[in-house]
């Protein structure tokens, strides 16, 4: 479960987030939608611990990780993130990415190998374990980034517009993969996107952000019957 309450992030004197409150239930999903500069990525980075809010709280699976004098560093939050740039390590093979992310969390060698192979199977990268990012296709890199985010055993997946540069068939395939992870693996997903199609494909709640605030919000139940036009109207002036 991901919960933020009154999250405020400033950049110098300028408030990037002006009190964002958001709740993604355990095993659920939420698409955070908005135009460029709306503050979507900042929410994600605050949840991950990559920026420090000046006010408000962040709770992950009920544990307070930021706010009220508490600060848990990113490496101890047990949250996986897929960056917009993917941030794959160019000097490591696909397998080394997962080994590094796994660290010493699984000490037993056989269990460790099983976990790695399981992830490769889940993201359909079997056979490409020894390739470096430069030798993978666009879709394969996306899948490797997702596998790495899940390698540490995290049940929280933060997606920062990872499909924005993909063509339509790849986008549909990866959206399906992410949806499958949530439905069969119980992974909680916070998905930042600027396209309504991606938001709907996430299959959970939808929140629309404008100028550092959430201006419209629908839970998964309500989002299922939403039309594209209804979501776009929440963008207000930004959509025009």
């Amino acid at each position: 479960m991901i919960e933020t309450e009154g999250l405020v992030v400033t950049h110098g004197k300028h408030a990037v987030l002006g009190g964002v409150s958001l709740r993604v239930p355990e095993g659920g999903a939420c698409a955070l939608l908005g135009s460029s500069g709306a503050g979507k990525t900042t929410v994600l980075r605050a949840v991950a611990g990559l920026v420090r809010p000046v006010a408000g709280t962040v709770r992950l699976n009920g544990r307070l990780v930021s706010g009220n004098g508490q600060w848990v560093p990113p490496e101890s939050r047990n949250a996986g993130m897929v960056f917009q740039s993917l941030a794959l390590w160019p000097h490591m093979t696909a397998r080394q990415h997962l080994v590094f992310a796994l660290g010493r969390k699984v000490k037993d060698r056989a269990a460790r190998e099983e976990r790695i192979q399981g992830l490769f199977t889940a993201v359909r990268l079997t056979g490409l374990e020894n390739r470096r990012p430069a030798a993978l296709s666009g879709g394969e890199r996306q899948r490797l980034a997702i596998a790495r985010a899940l390698a540490s055993g995290s049940r929280l997946l933060l997606l920062d517009e990872p499909f924005s540069s993909l063509d339509e068939p790849l986008r549909i395939g990866l959206s399906g993969l992410v949806r499958g992870l949530r439905e069969s693996g119980g992974v909680t997903i916070l998905h930042v996107t600027h396209t309504v199609e991606d938001a709907l494909a996430t299959g959970g709640g939808i929140a629309v952000m404008r100028q550092g605030r959430i201006v419209a919000e629908w839970d998964a139940e309500a989002a299922r019957v939403l039309t594209k036009q209804e979501i776009l109207s929440a963008f207000g002036r930004d959509a025009r």
């Binding site: 490496e75 993130m81 590094f100 540490s152």
Partner: peptide, 27 residues
């Protein structure tokens, strides 16, 4: 060296020392 490469290492649950040695130094 893109900062996101280090952030990805931190979010993988590895500490600053591991990220420095395994990601920053090689790159």
């Amino acid at each position: 060296v893109d900062r996101e490469l280090e952030e990805a290492g931190l979010l993988a649950g590895r500490g600053g020392a591991a990220v420095f040695i395994r990601i920053v130094l090689p790159l």
